[in-house]
Amino acid sequence: MTVQNVATAPQAGVPKTSVWRRIWQQDGPGYLFLLPWFIGFFGLTLGPMISSLYLSFTHFDLLTAPRWAGVDNYVRMFTNDPKFAASMRVTMFFVIFSVPLKLAFALGVAMLLNRGMKGLPLYRALFYLPSLLGASVAIAILWRQIFAGDGLVNKFLSIFGIVGPSWISNPNYSLWTLIVLAIWQFGSPMIIFLAGLRQIPQDMYEAASLDGASKWRQFWKITLPLLTPVVFFNAIIQTIEAFKSFTPAFIISGGTGNPINSTLFYTLYLYQEAFGFFRMGYASALAWVLLALVAVFTAFSFLTSKYWVHYDD
């Protein structure tokens, strides 16, 4: 549509066209640059999203046609589903502890690595290695080697005469081993922080140190403010990802969320309902409740961002 207007615009001089022309000049480039995204959004993404929203109001067992259920699924979730409550608690706990710790760790290492020291590329690569493993089956085996009753952690503790539990399979600690796993794979926020640090003009530091500002002061006055767009990005993305976290719990608990549902992440429960117990309608409702929750959190972050995120524009 807009492309045609561009072709007809030059030879037309009637006022009506100039309205179109003004619209084109104002909005055209933006929409043109967004064209691939629009095709993908309307062609591939939106349809399935709307389908899942529709399915959340049905009983759908995957194998026969969905039956309309009104708000049944949503009512059940909030009135009669202890596993929903349990999985929400597990996920909240995971988000609250894993996100800040992972971000702090990633930022700390990125700062350390950004000092222009020798061997920087080597360290950066080494620290990224754990993230390369992704969700490989090997992770589950490795984590048992470390956190089982006779694992490395307890071998280390036994030096001090401490007899530790089997961390990975004890309901009091199992979630913590997954939080440690999330922190251990801190590579991607670290890389993003590093890229952000590299975007801070070096001459600002030079000017500041000529004024006698200490390193500490430089961090608070230059580094952190200029890094806020990246901090903001990492915080939002890591939170969304943590809410949706699925694979670590899936591979380590073998998809069960045990012991005693202590690692029953929200999306793991959703997956069980959808593919294990043939309740795709209910699973879709779970998904949309999660979306609403994350959307409220994100909207709130964007609203407050104008007070603490520093953009150049």
């Binding site: 995204w37 959004f41 993404t45 349809g47 399935p48 999203m49 389908s51 899942s52 399915l55 995957l62 993305i237 969304i240 809410f243 949706k244 699925f246 999306t267 959703l270 997956y271 959808a274 593919f275 795709m280 699973a283 879709s284 998904a287 949309w288 999660l290 979306l291 994350v294 959307a295 994100t298």
Partner: peptide, 15 residues
């Protein structure tokens, strides 16, 4: 666009 990030992929898989 941000919303597309928030929906777990497990439920859009089949559609």
């Amino acid at each position: 666009m941000l919303m597309t990030l928030m929906l777990p992929y497990q439920v859009t898989l089949i559609p």
